[in-house]
Design a binder for these strands. Structure first.
Length: 638
DNA sequence: ATAGGGTTAG
């Protein structure tokens, strides 16, 4: 059995701490401040607390320099209460102190508290300055509240701080995050003086919009930036890298590699602090473009890897189906670098349990999440529901869904509905869907696909069709190709092939491969040769590059012994240079996963496995089961 | 003398 959570190592030895405590002479405010600086560079809460104790015992609580550094540090460690206590205990609060405490809340994602304090400044006769406005503008962007954003903008104009480059940059970013692109452009255009950050804020605004129309503006901006003589830096590139793979916006096939070259040529990867982040973006870009090995290359060359970098790499492997390597890295992250996974790491690695490592690994991750008090996170709970249902434990999935420790979103409902569907419990899935609607949770496309799949698996054709009608009529949703494929599958499986074909002809979206594929499987199931041929013709027309279509069709011909047709298809595949990646099966035993391909003799116990297989076939034949093993062998070992 | 801000993530 593999353990994914080794004991954590304490990277801070007692000697180091003793060194720092003895090296600093902690009797003057200046030395204490220096000591706090050391606590910050070593990210040590313990040293921070020692400094705090010293501040208290020397009666230096009213020193504004010490107080602001102390409260910032507490906020950095997530100790917001201590941070607030330090702030509250200072009687004469200067503007730096206000800015530090508001920024502390911002960095700890406590946006409402941050804004609340900003609003209270007036009662204390404190006037916001450029630092305050830049910070609160970011707060508005983070919560995506345009009203708050406009308020900060007005205040900046009134006080004249809008002339400060950083304040304006922050406003640009805020408008971008609120989706108010006109406002964003206006702030930028009206700027009196701009720096690279101004351009970056504008570019990231357009880049994150995910809107092709704005994508055009984006390239204009990048061009104008260069005309203006401002060089692209690490921030710029990391905004542009996530667009690689989006053909609509980039219109270039090797766009991601171009940006990678730019990084190397301009040595942006060695610029202090930005190399980790750029590395993450590169890994992500390569994984998204199915070049996970290129991503690994970047990962291996990074001089410093944080939890983001490890998680990006793990996610790359999971997305590309290499679950084994993902799990190896998940362990190495902890063993080699002593880095603890956070909730995103766990969410990303859970699909590897569903598909590869199995229930026990998934349970370990669940246990770890509970110990680290991460099990209230909705994304993690959703991933757990999904994992448990795919690992065969509907009960555990139900327990996570029903325990009420997290705030359910539409994904939680969808995951549980899908779980019931996967386990053949159509009635329960329908029931949950109704409950969701009653509670006013808005279903999305995924929910509908989930409930329709559940219906088709359980043969609830009429109920499925009525749901289909109600989502279009009552909820005004435009059905997606996937939803239509579900309907085709539902009708097809129940034997209503002609009705399925009629549906395809009248459905509101262009039928894609999934739709014809559903009709193919249904017509195979019901042995309707005419329909099979028809559906396959559309499928191959839509996906001439997908080898699976040819192989399936050829297998179909083989099953009815039409060998000429088989040979013709195989020839066509060869001419088009298509090869199908072989499928495989695997089984986990005693924590080790064994993988098998067709006619695979690579396993060390191969001969005894085949012996048992032969015995089983013999027994099956004896028991009168119909067997076409000869034919199967003929097809698969082709 | 010493403190506080913006543009980037999985």
């Amino acid at each position: 059995m593999t353990f994914f959570f080794p004991l954590s190592r304490n990277l801070f030895t007692t000697q180091t701490i003793r060194y720092y405590t003895s090296a600093a002479v902690l009797d003057s405010p200046f030395n204490l401040l220096h000591f706090l600086h050391l606590s910050a560079t070593h990210e040590s809460l313990r040293l921070t607390k020692q400094a705090h104790a010293r501040v208290l015992s020397l009666g230096l609580t009213q020193n504004p320099f010490l107080a602001s550094k102390l409260l910032s540090l507490y906020a950095f460690f997530g100790h917001l209460i201590e941070s607030r206590v330090v702030f509250d205990s200072v009687k004469e609060k200067n503007i730096c102190l206000w800015n530090s405490v508001i920024n502390g809340y911002l960095k700890s994602y406590s946006f409402i508290e941050a804004f609340d304090l900003f609003c209270k400044m007036g009662h204390f006769n404190a006037k916001p300055d450029d630092f305050t406005l830049a910070t609160v503008s970011k707060v508005a962007g983070e919560i995506g509240d345009l009203k708050v954003g406009n308020l900060v903008h007005c205040k900046s104009i009134k006080t004249g701080f809008v002339l400060d480059v950083v304040v304006s940059n922050s406003l640009i970013s805020m408008y971008g995050k609120c989706g108010e692109f006109e406002g964003m452009k206006k702030v930028f255009d009206e700027m009196f003086e701009r720096n690279v950050g101004s351009w970056n804020a504008l570019i990231s605004g357009y880049a994150n919009a995910g809107d092709c129309r704005l994508g055009k503006d984006l390239w204009e901006v990048v061009k104008n930036m260069q005309i203006d003589g401002v060089k692209l830096n690490g921030f710029t590139i990391s905004s542009l890298l996530p667009l690689s793979g989006n053909e609509e916006v980039t219109r270039r096939c090797d766009y991601g590699r171009e940006l990678h070259c730019y990084i190397l040529k301009n040595e942006l990867d060695s610029a202090c602090g930005s190399d980790v982040h750029l590395g993450c973006c590169l890994i992500d870009m390569y994984s998204r473009n199915s070049k996970v090995l290129m991503g690994r290359n970047v990962f291996d060359r990074m001089r410093f890897r944080n939890v983001y970098a490890w998680t990006a790499m793990i996610n790359g492997y999971v997305d590309n189906g290499d679950f084994d390597e993902a799990l190896v890295l998940f362990q190495e992250m902890q063993l080699r670098d002593g880095i603890e996974p956070n909730k995103v790491s766990l969410v990303n690695v859970l699909p590897a349990c569903s598909s590869y490592a199995g229930l026990m690994a998934g349970k370990q991750i669940h246990g770890y999440a509970i110990r680290k008090e991460l099990s209230h996170d909705v994304a993690l709970c959703n991933a757990l529901i999904d994992m448990y249902s795919k690992c065969g434990s509907l009960n555990c999935a139900k327990q996570v869904f029903e325990n009420g420790l997290f705030c359910k979103d539409s994904i939680s409902w969808s995951s549980m509905i899908c779980a019931y569907g996967l386990h053949g419990k159509g009635e329960e899935a329908m029931c949950l869907f109704d409950q969701m609607l009653l509670l006013g949770v808005k279903p999305d496309m995924i929910t509908v696909v989930g409930v329709l799949s559940a219906c088709r698996r359980s043969g609830l054709v009429n109920k499925g069709l009525s749901i289909y009608k109600s989502i279009t009529n009552d909820y005004g949703m435009k059905p997606t190709v996937e939803i239509c494929a579900c309907v085709v599958d539902m009708l097809g499986r129940s034997g209503q092939l002609d009705r399925a074909l009629d549906f395809i002809k009248t459905m509101p979206v262009e039928p894609g491969p999934s739709v014809w594929g559903a009709l193919v499987s249904a017509s195979v199931m019901h042995e309707n040769l005419e329909m099979q041929d028809l559906a396959y013709r559309f499928l191959i027309q839509l996906e001439p590059e997908n080898p699976s279509n040819y192989v399936s069709l050829s297998n179909l011909h083989a099953s009815s012994k039409r060998w000429n047709a088989v040979a013709g298809l195989r020839k066509m595949m060869k001419e088009r240079g298509l090869r199908k990646a072989p499928g495989c099966s695997w089984i986990s035993m005693n924590g080790k996963t064994h993988c098998f391909y067709v006619a695979d003799k690579a396993h060390p116990h191969s001969s005894s496995i085949y012996e048992i297989l032969d015995d089983l076939i013999f027994i099956m034949k004896g028991a009168g089961y119909p067997t076409d093993f000869e034919e199967l062998t003929q097809i698969t070992s082709y």
